[in-house]
Amino acid sequence: MIGKIATGEIEDTADATKSAAAQLGSMGGKKRAANMTPERRSEIAKGAAKARWTVKQD
Rank of each mutant, 00 (worst) to 15 (best):
T13H: 00
D58L: 01
A20Y: 10
I44G: 08
M36G: 12
I10Y: 01
I5P: 05
I44K: 09
E39S: 13
G25W: 05
A45D: 09
M36L: 12
K46C: 05
R41E: 03
S42C: 10
G29M: 15
T54L: 11
M36S: 10
K18H: 10
V55K: 15
E43H: 08
A34N: 00
G29N: 15
S42A: 14
D12V: 02
M1P: 01
I10R: 00
D12S: 08
M27S: 09
S26N: 08
T7L: 15
D58G: 05
K4P: 14
Q57Y: 01
A22R: 14
G28F: 13
R41Y: 08
R52V: 04
L24P: 00
G47T: 00
L24D: 12
I2T: 03
M1A: 10
R52E: 06
N35E: 05
R41W: 10
D58K: 11
D12I: 02
V55E: 13
R52I: 04
E9I: 15
A49V: 09
P38Q: 14
I5F: 07
Q23M: 13
E39F: 14
D58M: 03
G8T: 06
K30P: 00
S26P: 00
K56H: 09
M1G: 06
E11R: 05
A14S: 14
Q23W: 01
I5R: 06
M1N: 03
A51R: 13
V55Q: 11
Q57H: 00
D15I: 08
V55L: 11
A48W: 01
S26L: 14
G28A: 15
A34Q: 01
A21L: 06
A51T: 05
N35Y: 01
S19P: 05
G47N: 12
A6P: 00
Q57I: 10
G47D: 08
I2Y: 01
Q57C: 02
T17R: 12
G28Q: 12
T37V: 10
W53D: 11
G8N: 04
P38T: 11
A45E: 06
I44H: 02
R40W: 03
